[in-house]
Amino acid sequence: MSLTIQLQTMLSMLAMGAWIGASLDTYGKLTYQPRSFRWTVAIRDLLFWCVQALLVFYVLYQANLGELRGYIFVALLCGYAAYRALLQSVYTYLLDRLIMLVVSIVRFIRKSVYYILINPVKWLLKLTLSLCMIVLTLVWKICLVISSIIWKPLWWLFRPLFQSLSKSKIYGKMVPYFRKLKEKSQSVWKKNDKR
């Protein structure tokens, strides 16, 4: 292995050490880590470290065709330590600001969708329901007026018949049914008048 390839490998491993430090900070900020043990957290952590290992090996393969030497691990550790000492505070500050920006953009989009799409649809549904109730009430009132217009002439027409029936024995048996019918019709009229 030539000196140029060794230097290239050292620099790339230093960069990968810094990358691992930044990835750890990002992973810690973006994921919830409960204090108690959970299998989902363990599997997620294992997948994170598998991805990091694959990235390191890919960069190492690009630098020196995947040849492992002892100084590679030292370079990774030095890169991680350099990140912790020099770049961590700046990176976490920028990461916090980026997360706050993304959260505010998502909130803005949610509010915009609510006020532009959902709120007008709700208002239209309420308006449609109110109009339907008005139409149904109007139709009911018209039906009541029409039935009273039809009922009164029929009452005057069949009144002599009812009076003659009232003197018969059949009427005495039917009086309770007529009273119930009259009470029900009066209660319906009262409810409609209140509306």
Rank of each mutant, 00 (worst) to 15 (best):
T31A: 06
I146A: 09
L101H: 10
C78A: 15
Y61N: 11
L124E: 09
K141L: 09
S89A: 13
V121R: 02
K190E: 10
L165F: 03
L117A: 10
P160Q: 00
Y171L: 00
L87C: 04
I149D: 05
C50W: 14
R110W: 07
V139M: 08
G28R: 15
T92F: 01
Q8C: 07
P153A: 02
S185P: 00
V175F: 05
V56D: 02
I5N: 10
G28H: 14
N192T: 12
S104C: 03
Y93Q: 15
A53D: 01
S104M: 07
L11G: 07
L7W: 14
L161D: 03
L138I: 08
T40N: 10
T92E: 10
L181Y: 07
L144K: 04
Q8G: 12
V74S: 07
I20S: 11
R195F: 04
K182F: 10
L68K: 13
V113A: 08
L181S: 08
V175P: 03
P160G: 02
R107L: 12
L47R: 13
F158G: 02
L65K: 15
S147C: 06
W19T: 12
T137C: 04
I99W: 01
L30N: 06
L95C: 03
I105V: 14
V51I: 15
S104D: 14
V51Q: 08
S104N: 12
K180I: 10
I109Y: 03
S168W: 03
D45A: 02
I43Y: 10
G70P: 00
V113Q: 04
L138E: 07
Y71V: 06
G70H: 03
L131S: 05
R69L: 00
Y114R: 04
M10E: 04
K190I: 11
N64K: 01
P176K: 03
I99M: 06
Y80A: 07
R110A: 13
S2Y: 09
L125K: 12
L54S: 13
T128K: 15
V74F: 08
I116A: 11
L14V: 09
W19M: 13
L98I: 06
L76H: 03
V175G: 02
L98S: 13
Y171H: 05
R97E: 08
I146G: 00
K111L: 12
I170P: 01
L136V: 10
Q6R: 15
Q52P: 02
I109E: 04
Y27G: 07
M133G: 10
A15R: 15
L144D: 04
F108S: 13
T137G: 07
Q163L: 12
Q52E: 11
D96G: 03
G66Y: 02
Q88G: 02
T92A: 01
L30E: 00
Y32H: 13
S104I: 04
Y171V: 04
S164N: 10
K182G: 01
P34V: 05
R110Y: 06
Y114C: 01
V102P: 02
W151S: 14
A18E: 02
I116T: 11
T137Q: 10
I116D: 04
D45M: 06
D96M: 03
M1S: 14
W123S: 14
